[in-house]
């Protein structure tokens, strides 16, 4: 009984701390930016479409939980835990790719959604390992070569930036390689790709694995950053926030993700500010639930963007000449 009470008070404390963290628009912006950057791989890396954003959160959760549980309860080295987390997420990605190989269209959608649901249900119910809804508390700050990276000394921001730079670099390298071109071909037109002799199954597995790997990597960052995770950390609202960011900024571009994150992340703060500002006004003009209004606005952004500018603010066709890979020459008959 006493134990439970203690847990509960810890829990409330943790919730309050997280609330305070989220008060800070800069931190929020950075989280969302990081998230958006990782989501940006979704359209590029995988043969996935947008409805499958849910699955990225599932891999995100797998990475986060693996790293957090290892570092908090086993005292594993941070780097080792990160690599294990990302690899486990990647392995799940490969497994999912193998099991959805025979499916197409809507069937893949529902299976990936089901996968997300099964993972979050396991997190909630496997109390002995994941601590269920109580969550994992007091996650240690990442320790790199004897240096503690915390929120206070700002180390964690540099870590996020490092991850983001690393992932952008890695994706650019992969996208412009032979594997990347094959993945793009399979994504854009599977039938045509098969006709050109591309092994669609092999590249689907590669794409899923890579996307899951990077999502898992992003997840390993989340735990030490927040200091606390539980089953509710990884929910559809995260998917929707990320989805809105990429839709607003422009689908499949880094620029778009950054712009989207800059516009979207202060929205919650603005609405909260508006609520206090409107206190003096007549009752019918007041906004009482800023959080809900934020989601209504998200929905409106989605609908309006799809109606008037589906490619996003910065999206659209690239006017730059297509860059030929090494060893391929452009020969135009004149």
């Amino acid at each position: 009984m006493n134990m439970k009470k203690e847990n509960k008070s810890l829990y409330t404390k943790a919730v309050i701390t997280i609330g305070q963290l989220w008060e800070n628009p800069i931190i929020k912006g950075i989280i969302l930016l990081a998230l958006a950057l990782f989501v940006y791989f979704l359209p590029k890396m995988a043969t996935l479409y947008f409805q499958r954003i849910a699955i990225m959160v599932a891999f995100y959760a797998i990475g986060a939980y693996t790293a957090v549980l290892l570092t908090t309860y086993r005292g594993t080295n941070y780097l080792v835990a990160v690599i294990l987390g990302a690899c486990l997420a990647g392995a799940f990605g490969a497994l999912l790719a193998l099991s959805t190989m025979r499916l197409s269209g809507t069937y893949v959608t529902i299976v990936t959604m089901a996968f997300f649901y099964v993972i979050s249900s396991i997190i909630l119910n496997w109390d002995s390992v994941t601590k269920g809804s109580v969550g994992v508390l007091n996650i240690p700050a990442p320790n790199l070569f004897g240096m503690k990276l915390t929120m206070k000394n700002g180390g964690i921001f540099y870590l996020i930036m490092f991850y983001a730079a690393l992932t952008i670099l890695a994706t650019q390298l992969i996208i412009n390689s032979k594997v990347g071109r094959a993945i793009k071909a399979v994504r854009d037109d599977e039938m045509a790709a098969i006709m050109m002799g591309i092994n669609n199954k092999k590249y689907k597995i590669i794409a899923y694995t890579l996307a899951a790997f990077f999502a898992g990597l992003a997840g390993t960052l989340y735990g030490p950053f927040m200091g606390y995770i539980n089953n509710a950390t990884f929910n559809y609202d995260i998917c929707i926030s990320a989805l809105v960011i990429v839709i607003l900024g422009g689908i499949g571009t880094v620029k778009g993700a950054i712009i989207g994150a800059i516009i979207i992340s202060p929205l919650g703060e603005l609405l909260r500010g508006l609520t206090t500002f409107m206190k003096g006004l007549p009752e019918w003009m007041q906004i009482s639930q800023p959080e809900q209004w934020r989601f209504v606005i998200y929905g409106m952004i989605m609908v309006i963007m799809m109606r008037f500018r589906p490619q996003g603010i910065l999206g659209g066709q690239s006017k730059l000449p297509y860059k030929m890979p090494k060893g391929v020459e452009r020969k135009v008959m004149k």
Binding site: L243, Q292, W293, F295, V296, Y298, M306
Partner: peptide
């Protein structure tokens, strides 16, 4: 309007996600 414009299926699907978000959160409010 999306059908008239000949927009892609994904646009239509994202629109339905957005609309459902609007409805649920209006009920919430």
């Amino acid at each position: 309007p999306l059908r008239k414009k000949g927009a892609s299926k994904i646009s239509a699907m994202i629109t339905t996600i957005g609309l459902s978000y609007i409805i649920i959160n209006c009920l919430n409010i």
